[in-house]
């Protein structure tokens, strides 16, 4: 369905201001530009993602795996993600997700399988065929063939380039607030910084590591199940691996704890001892913005719409949330699924 973004009374494209150039703000900008609006982004950081929690994301486009603990909208809306990202940036890898458990935690694999769909069961040979470096290490696994992943930092900068290529503008180092911005509509995409406007938004701390090893190669994200802390290892270019991510009910963004570091390194080491020799390239800490139901929301307050609460699903749900935000701005009668109108 094609909705015109021309305001008929003024006969010019709708102009939308956006605060925040994290994954949500940039996705909204690209979506709006693609549908004919003009867009101007204000970002307090020096480049796209610098101060966004999406900078530390895993970049897994894994709606079916997330279904293990996430609610139905995440699984359904997340299925838009891989195609959307492929249309807008290079570097989306469609090689699925591998889910493994150490033999003593085999029951975790059964319970993961009972809560998810769209996977096949693998034995040791099947695992080795997909990931030769893991040969002989795991006897059972689940393979979610339809899932994908991307490098979040590369994706953020490519998305910012796309905004500019489509005629949008980005003001870095800007402290402008939503109410200061001109425009027919304003999208507030500040993540956790929007707590001042969204009192039930909370931070869920996540810690991650970037390791470098040339002794092991993986082609796809691997999730390692553990009764307490399911962790994952995502391969990136140049021997880099992202190991993430903890989930702690805290808005702290300052430091990793020793325990988290042990757990993250322990998971990588359990996946393959070669990680014991890896270089620790980076330690990342941030807090994800989440509402009490851990589902994203559009909140309308006059001409300002707050797009927030993407929790651990920034890359997975930004495409669907951007589509809905654009609908809310461009289509007068439209009430998108995740829209919460603020009480008057």
């Amino acid at each position: 369905m094609a909705h015109s973004s021309i305001d008929p009374s003024r006969n010019r494209p709708l102009h939308v201001g956006i605060v925040g150039a994290g994954v949500v703000g940039l996705a909204c900008a690209v979506e709006l530009l693609g549908r004919g609006a003009t867009v101007e982004i204000h970002e307090r950081g020096a480049f796209a993602g610098e101060r966004a929690c999406s900078w530390h994301a895993g970049g897994m486009l894994a709606p079916w795996c997330e279904g293990e603990s996430a609610e139905e909208p995440v699984i359904r809306l997340g299925q838009e993600a891989a195609g959307w990202w492929e249309r807008h940036v290079a570097g989306v890898v469609r090689k699925g997700t591998l889910v493994l458990a150490p033999s003593r935690d085999r029951s975790e694999l059964r319970s993961f399988g009972s809560r998810t769909t769209r996977f096949s069961e693998l034995d040791g040979e099947g695992i080795a065929a997909l990931e030769p470096d893991l040969a002989g290490r795991f006897a059972k696994g689940l393979f979610f063939e339809d899932e994908a992943h991307l490098d979040p930092r590369a994706a953020l900068s490519r998305l910012a380039e796309k905004v500019l290529a489509l005629g949008g503008r980005i003001h870095f180092g800007s402290e402008a607030a939503a109410d200061d911005l001109a425009g027919d509509a304003v999208l507030d995409c500040r993540g956790l910084a929007a707590r001042d406007a969204l009192p039930d938004l909370r931070g869920v701390k996540g810690e991650m590591l970037l390791l470098r090893s040339h002794d092991i190669a993986l082609s796809r994200p691997v999730r390692l199940l553990h009764p307490r802390i399911p962790l994952y290892v995502v391969p990136r270019a140049d021997g880099l691996f992202m190991v993430g991510a903890t989930m702690i009910e805290s808005g702290d963004r300052s430091r990793i704890s020793a325990r988290s570091m042990l757990e993250l390194l322990g998971a990588a080491y359990a996946l393959h001892p070669a990680f014991g020799e890896a270089e620790v390239v980076e330690i990342g800490v941030d807090a994800r913005p989440a509402f009490p139901d851990n589902l994203p929301r559009l909140t309308r307050r006059g001409r300002v719409i707050l797009v927030n609460g993407l929790y651990r699903h920034g890359f997975l749900l930004s495409p669907a949330m951007a589509r809905m935000a654009a609908d809310a701005v461009l289509v007068p009668a439209c009430i998108p699924e995740m829209l919460h109108d603020a009480a008057a």
């Binding site: 938004l201 931070g203 808005g251 702290d252």
Partner: peptide, 10 residues
């Protein structure tokens, strides 16, 4: 250490 306590929301 946090301003007003980082875990306060929870």
């Amino acid at each position: 250490a946090g301003e007003g306590g980082a875990g306060q929301a929870f």
